[in-house]
Each structure stands twice: as structure tokens, then as C-alpha cells.
């Protein structure tokens, strides 16, 4: 690297960076693809779907908040293992995780998404959008499923998923960053390694551009999540205060 915000990496450096990020991703991705393929036939029966649909709204929100909180902890570990992340100042580590952890979770969700059946792995089995009906936010759920469907159509490899997740997490345009240039440098290196891997995998030239669009779509999804949480909190302030995991509140409801 020449040390500025536009790093020029050698092929070997690109490969090395891609390998490290892919290793970090596989160590912290919660589910391996092989495990998921074995579980793909386990779909919720109609009576199980109805059980979720009949849950009180606050109980279903709590369940989803718990699942998201579990996933956040794995994203934090992923971040810690990205070369250079722990060298950033603590303020910036927190800013990036606060803004990007849910975005990475939505990217990771595409690995546990069955595009043929339009189902996602949730609470032990594959769930269709109607499982989430009692949350009372059909538009958010359908946007999340549409996003997963469209990400799946790109058929990313694990290495591409890993680099795209790191690229999203290292977004240098988040508000409140103190050392923006350092983050920018890391993000550009990651983007460059992603581009290198896409070329190596002989992917269509447009894939990187499509991934940039997906990064904007992720921001919109997270914005919608915040809106829905704020609306839910207005109606059920005590449920958020007493039932939601402290880490979820720290990240999304502070």
C-alpha cells in the first residue's frame, strides 16, 4: 500500500487480504452452508406457523430482538478479526458496528435463505414471510425477503460474501467517525480485494456495481427497521425496556 486513501495492492496482497477476511467470515458466520443444506427440508408446519402468528406482538418482537442480538455478537467477532479494524480508535469501532452490524446481518441472512421456497432459517427451521406476521410490519418483512431474493440471484461465493460484508461494515461515510481517512483506507483496500476476487472468479463486470446498489438498499432496510422499532416502542415502551436484550437496546434503541 502507498499509505494514502487509494491503496495500490499487489496481487499477493489482494489474495492475502481476501483470505484473512474469508477466514474471519467462516469462523464467525454462525452456520456453515453444508449444515444449512442438510437442514433445508425442515420447514415450519402450518400449525407451527400459526403459533408464531398468534403470539402477542411484543413477544414476537422480543424473539426477533433476541435472534438479532445473537447474530450481532458474531458480527462483532467478525469485525475484530478484520485486519486493521482493532487499530481504529474505539469511537470509530463503535460507530461502524452501531451503524453496520444489522446491515451485515441482512447480508449474512442471504446465506440462510432458500430462494426457491422464499424461506429463511429462523428459530430452528425455515420460515416463510407469514411466520413474522404478528410483528405487525409486513412491509419491512417483505423488503427483507425481497432483498435476500435479489442478493441470492447474484450467487456470491463465501469469499465474495465475506469481502462484501467487510466492505459494508467499513463504510467510511458513517456519521460521527473521528478518523474517517483511516476507515476510508481500510474500505478501499477491501473494495479493491473484492474487485480482484470478482475478476478472479470471472464474474460479470456489473456485479461490483450491483453490490454497490445493494449497499444502498441495506441502508434503506435498516432505516425501515429503525422506523418500525420507534413505532413499536411508542406503543410498548415497557416491553422494549424490560424484555429486549440490553445489547439490542444499546445498538438500536438508545
Amino acid at each position: 500500500s502507498n499509505g494514502d486513501a487509494s491503496p495500490t495492492l499487489t496481487l499477493a496482497e489482494h489474495d492475502h487480504l481476501a483470505q484473512i477476511i474469508c477466514k474471519s467470515h467462516l469462523e464467525t458466520c454462525q452456520y456453515l452452508r453444508e449444515e444449512l443444506q442438510e437442514m433445508s427440508w425442515q420447514r415450519f408446519l402450518q400449525e407451527e406457523v400459526e403459533k408464531y402468528q398468534n403470539k402477542p406482538q411484543e413477544a414476537m418482537w422480543q424473539l426477533c430482538a433476541v435472534k438479532i442480538t445473537d447474530a450481532v455478537q458474531y458480527v462483532v467477532e467478525f469485525a475484530k478479526r478484520i485486519d486493521g479494524f482493532m487499530d481504529l480508535c474505539q469511537n470509530d469501532q463503535i460507530v461502524l458496528l452501531k451503524a453496520g452490524s444489522l446491515e451485515v446481518i441482512f447480508v449474512r441472512m442471504c446465506r440462510v435463505f432458500d430462494s426457491q421456497n422464499n424461506t429463511v432459517y429462523f428459530d430452528g427451521k425455515f420460515a416463510s414471510p407469514d411466520v413474522f406476521k404478528s410483528l405487525g410490519c409486513d412491509d419491512l418483512i417483505s423488503s427483507v425477503f425481497d432483498f435476500a431474493q435479489s442478493m441470492c440471484s447474484l450467487q456470491l461465493t463465501e469469499e465474495e460474501f465475506a469481502l462484501f460484508s467487510a466492505f459494508v461494515l467499513l463504510s467510511a461515510d458513517r456519521s460521527w467517525l473521528r478518523e474517517k481517512l483511516q476507515v476510508e483506507k481500510l474500505q478501499r483496500k477491501t473494495e479493491s480485494a473484492l474487485q480482484h476476487v470478482l475478476q478472479k472468479n470471472r464474474r460479470d463486470d456489473g456485479v461490483l456495481e450491483k453490490l454497490r446498489c445493494k449497499a444502498s438498499a441495506l441502508r434503506a432496510l435498516c432505516g425501515l427497521h429503525s422506523e418500525k422499532l420507534a413505532a413499536f416502542r411508542t406503543v410498548y415502551p415497557d416491553a422494549v425496556r424490560t424484555l429486549f436484550p440490553p445489547l439490542y437496546k444499546e445498538l438500536f434503541a438508545a
Binding site: 469462523e27 455478537q73 458474531y74 462483532v76 467477532e77 475484530k80 474505539q90 458496528l97 452501531k98 444499546e250
Partner: peptide, 20 residues
């Protein structure tokens, strides 16, 4: 730091849920 106590702890911890 106080506002993001848990996140701060997770970043400092050498053992994590992933390792356990």
C-alpha cells in the same frame, strides 16, 4: 463508553461467544 458499555466489553473481550 457508558452509552455503549456492552459493545465496548465485546470489543475488549478476548473470549467471545464464537470461541465458547
Amino acid at each position: 463508553k457508558e452509552k455503549h458499555k456492552i459493545l465496548h466489553q465485546l470489543l475488549q473481550n478476548s473470549t467471545s461467544p464464537v470461541d465458547l
